[in-house]
Amino acid sequence: MKHLITLLMITPFIWSCYNQAQKKTNNESSSSQTMSKQTIYQFQVEDLEGNTFDFSTLKGKKILVVNTASECGLTPQYEQLQAIYEKHKDKNFVIIGFPANNFGSQEPGTNQQIATFCQKNFGVSFPMMSKISVKGNDMHAVYQFLTQKAKNGLEDSEVQWNFQKYLINEKGELDKVVSPRTLPTDAEIVNWIES
């Protein structure tokens, strides 16, 4: 009888501990779900001609995403971007350019002017998207994914300047963030493409 009374007294305490442990487990699993890695494949954007571009069509390819500008000291990087695109485009690699006017108003042109500039001056044939914002309150959703660890699962970053590169693996996940000043033909990028 004494044991039964003791058992009846401690049962609510044990039950309370069990419930708290269950709540903690459920909270941990729901927070890990909110931190789950997203992919770039969820996005559809508009290209320079106004057509819909669906990132899900790039499954299985390595993707270099770069914010570009026509009147920047780094604008000659278009030439190296085109060179690595030509060399690797048949080996499951693509470059996606996003013109942006966020830094020193160095991309003031319209989509048509940007398209003409890229083709005429650098022979750009990799996909170029419509002009967007890559930072600030009007940051495009693609760049929210690229710069926020809660969405990309890798790291928080900030677009420092024109021609910052984001390297996306064959699963659509962010692999690496590369400085604007690092040339597209740098070993860091070429080794990643060829690995």
Rank of each mutant, 00 (worst) to 15 (best):
D47R: 05
E158K: 14
G97R: 10
Q20C: 01
P76Q: 10
V177F: 10
L58Y: 09
M129V: 13
E46D: 09
K23Q: 03
E173A: 03
A150L: 11
F126I: 09
N27W: 02
F103V: 07
K2A: 12
K24A: 07
F43N: 06
C118N: 06
D138A: 09
F122C: 13
T110C: 03
N26H: 03
S36Y: 00
T110I: 08
G153Q: 09
G172K: 13
F126D: 06
Q80E: 13
V45W: 06
H88E: 01
V159L: 15
Q33D: 06
W192L: 04
D138L: 09
S29N: 11
T116A: 10
K131G: 06
N51R: 11
D175H: 12
M129S: 09
D156Y: 05
I63V: 05
E71L: 14
N121V: 14
Y85L: 08
E194N: 14
T6H: 04
F43K: 04
P108L: 07
E194F: 12
T116Y: 06
K62C: 06
S16D: 11
D138T: 13
F53N: 05
Q80L: 11
F55S: 01
K37D: 08
I14H: 07
G136Y: 00
K89Q: 12
A100T: 01
N67P: 10
A150I: 07
S130L: 08
T68A: 01
L74P: 00
E170I: 02
N162F: 14
S30M: 07
F43R: 04
S179F: 11
A21W: 07
P180A: 02
A150D: 12
A187R: 11
T25S: 12
T11R: 00
Q38D: 04
L58I: 08
G123R: 06
K61A: 13
A150M: 10
G109F: 00
K59W: 08
N169Q: 01
Q80G: 10
P184R: 09
L8W: 00
K61P: 06
V134W: 03
Y166L: 02
K149F: 07
V94R: 02
L7G: 10
V178K: 14
E155A: 14
D138Q: 12
G172Y: 14
I96K: 00
L183G: 15
M129T: 12
W15K: 00
I84K: 00
A21H: 08
L154M: 06
G97I: 11
Y18Q: 10
Y18C: 12
F145M: 01
E46V: 11
Q77G: 07
S30W: 02
E46S: 13
N27D: 14
F117L: 05
E86T: 15
M128T: 10
E158C: 08
